[in-house]
Amino acid sequence: MPRSEARVITDRPHRYAKQLAAHLGRKVEGSWDEQTGQASLTFSAGTATVNAEPGLLLLAVEGEADDLDRLEDVVGRHLVRFGAKDELVAEWHRDNGSPGTVQRNDAEEAASAG
């Protein structure tokens, strides 16, 4: 199954992973393991994992090729919104070598466009 990954630099990886799992877990099946620092989410279109590592979050989504954009967007957009103060950016890379989507704070996008 096609896969896409993003490495998000942050000083608070556990906080954001737990928050993302709790928030998205209200709408889809999700779990958070405090010991391992790993969250897993099951969407109708695929799955996502979030691993809290020292200084970064490792995000991964798997689904049909047509669903990767949507899975990347849902996981990345929510994370970036939670981490707006820290200016988190999720830049996805697909296992076939092609670039995925990018989620960043809208205020940052507007400032760089002007």
Results as ranks from 00 to 15, higher is better:
residue 56 L to W: 02
residue 66 D to K: 14
residue 79 L to H: 03
residue 95 D to K: 07
residue 65 A to G: 01
residue 57 L to P: 08
residue 74 V to T: 15
residue 60 A to D: 02
residue 73 D to T: 14
residue 82 F to Y: 12
residue 94 R to M: 05
residue 92 W to R: 09
residue 86 D to Y: 02
residue 66 D to G: 11
residue 77 R to D: 15
residue 79 L to I: 08
residue 55 G to H: 06
residue 55 G to D: 07
residue 86 D to F: 01
residue 90 A to E: 04
residue 86 D to P: 01
residue 91 E to P: 00
residue 73 D to C: 03
residue 81 R to P: 00
residue 82 F to G: 01
residue 61 V to D: 03
residue 65 A to V: 10
residue 60 A to G: 09
residue 73 D to P: 00
residue 74 V to D: 02
residue 69 D to P: 13
residue 78 H to P: 01
residue 63 G to Y: 01
residue 82 F to D: 01
residue 85 K to Q: 14
residue 93 H to F: 11
residue 84 A to S: 15
residue 56 L to D: 03
residue 56 L to G: 02
residue 69 D to I: 02
residue 63 G to W: 00
residue 81 R to N: 08
residue 86 D to S: 09
residue 87 E to I: 00
residue 70 R to A: 12
residue 84 A to K: 14
residue 83 G to Q: 09
residue 72 E to S: 10
residue 86 D to G: 02
residue 94 R to P: 06
residue 59 L to T: 05
residue 94 R to I: 05
residue 76 G to H: 07
residue 54 P to V: 07
residue 76 G to F: 02
residue 66 D to N: 10
residue 77 R to E: 15
residue 78 H to G: 01
residue 82 F to H: 06
residue 56 L to S: 12
residue 85 K to L: 10
residue 92 W to G: 06
residue 62 E to K: 10
residue 72 E to K: 11
residue 61 V to Q: 05
residue 60 A to C: 12
residue 94 R to V: 03
residue 90 A to K: 07
residue 85 K to R: 15
residue 90 A to S: 14
residue 81 R to H: 11
residue 64 E to D: 13
residue 83 G to H: 04
residue 95 D to S: 15
residue 92 W to T: 04
residue 55 G to S: 08
residue 74 V to K: 05
residue 65 A to L: 09
residue 82 F to P: 03
residue 90 A to F: 04
residue 61 V to H: 06
residue 90 A to C: 14
residue 91 E to R: 15
residue 72 E to Q: 15
residue 55 G to K: 06
residue 58 L to C: 06
residue 58 L to I: 06
residue 73 D to M: 10
residue 88 L to M: 08
residue 60 A to I: 00
residue 94 R to D: 04
residue 65 A to C: 00
residue 83 G to A: 09
residue 93 H to V: 11
residue 80 V to F: 08
residue 81 R to I: 01
residue 77 R to F: 07
residue 67 D to G: 00
residue 77 R to H: 12
residue 71 L to I: 10
residue 63 G to T: 01
residue 85 K to P: 00
residue 61 V to Y: 06
residue 80 V to T: 12
residue 56 L to A: 11
residue 55 G to M: 03
residue 76 G to K: 05
residue 93 H to W: 07
residue 69 D to A: 15
residue 80 V to C: 14
residue 59 L to E: 06
residue 84 A to I: 05
residue 64 E to L: 08
residue 69 D to H: 13
residue 63 G to I: 00
residue 80 V to M: 09
residue 59 L to N: 09
residue 91 E to A: 15
residue 85 K to C: 00
residue 86 D to I: 04
residue 78 H to N: 13
residue 69 D to N: 12
residue 84 A to E: 13
residue 93 H to K: 15
residue 66 D to P: 00
residue 91 E to T: 14
residue 54 P to D: 11
residue 83 G to V: 04
